Computed example of a mutant assay.
Amino acid sequence: MTRILGIGECMIEMAPTGEGTFAMGFAGDTFNTCWYARRLAGPELRVGYLTAVGDDDPSRRMEEFMRDAGVEPEFTVRPGGSVGLYMISLKDGERSFSYWRSTSAARTLADDLEVLPDMTDGDVALVSGITLAILPEAGRTRLLEVLHDARKRGVRVAFDPNIRPKLWESTETMRRWVMAAARVCDIALPSHEDEATHFGDADASATADRYAGAGAGLVVVKDGADPVVIRTPDSRETITPARVTEVVDTTAAGDAFNGAFLVALLEGAEAAQAAKAGCALSARVIAARGALVPV
């Protein structure tokens, strides 16, 4: 059986209901991708999630939530620790976030990590820029070393830069670590708007070229409603997403794309067909509230 393993931070999510209240759930960029992957994939694909949690009730509830969703928890338990929390604010379909995560156990997920658990040739490990941003320098180094070693065993590494400048010590540090991760990934899944702002890319093709130049064999550049650019060592093509008439909440649009894309790719689809699946799922997700939308 093939496996997708997400690596990062899953948090308590407080999402607006539209009635002036908030609904509690669990979400986080790489976990969202795993959640959607599990919803879409058949039984031949296993989905797991690697993080660190505490030994408190929110951590136990998170584990139950993942198991109920069919995602296999790969947790390191930190006694006395807990999980982070964030709240979503919405305006005209665009979201902003408030975070309470400074003492999250997930910041220690790589402290004693030596090998990716239960991963073999053909499996996919997924990390993001947020995964790296929440770790200390030593944790970032260790995680990239573990990913490098996993690639030697045939594990494919997927990387979504998911740039969040406020999580990083400086712009220079952010750029350095994002490109360090790009050099150990097989599949890069950047978003052009973020990349243009912080790396100065003129267009989505320039973003694709930069990640390909770093060593990614397959680069898929998301660009909101604009065409998705797909670059391999031998080809370049674009996929135009269907027009979405009403945007309710863009939370997890890119995460959902990643989930559908990776599942389709692992099930044998060509990259262009997998990108179409990603676009279709994103369109459904942004038409509803919250990070995790039933599909």
Rank of each mutant, 00 (worst) to 15 (best):
I4M: 14
I7E: 11
G8V: 10
I12L: 15
E13F: 09
T21D: 14
F22I: 07
T33Y: 03
R39T: 13
R46M: 10
L50M: 14
G54Q: 06
G54W: 04
D56A: 09
D56R: 08
R60Q: 14
E64C: 08
E64G: 09
G70T: 11
G70D: 13
V77Y: 11
S82V: 13
S82C: 12
L85H: 12
Y86I: 08
M87Y: 13
G93S: 09
R95Y: 08
F97S: 06
L109V: 13
L113C: 12
P117D: 13
P117T: 13
A125P: 00
G129V: 01
T131V: 12
L132Q: 05
A133E: 09
I134Y: 03
I134A: 03
P136D: 15
L143G: 06
E145C: 11
E145M: 12
D149M: 10
D149G: 11
K152M: 09
R153T: 14
R153L: 11
A158G: 02
D160N: 07
D160Y: 01
D160I: 01
P161R: 08
P165C: 07
K166I: 12
T173Y: 08
R175C: 05
W177L: 06
A188V: 00
A188P: 00
A196I: 01
H198W: 15
G200Q: 12
A208Y: 01
A208F: 00
R210Q: 08
A212F: 03
G215N: 02
G215P: 02
L218A: 02
L218R: 05
D226W: 07
P241S: 07
A242P: 09
R243W: 10
R243D: 13
E246H: 13
T250Y: 07
G254M: 04
G259A: 05
G259F: 00
A260D: 04
L262F: 04
E267Y: 03
G268A: 07
A269Q: 12
E270K: 11
A271Y: 00
A275M: 03
K276Y: 05
G278L: 04
A280C: 06
A283S: 13
R284F: 04
V285G: 00
V285A: 00
A288F: 08
A288C: 10
A288N: 13
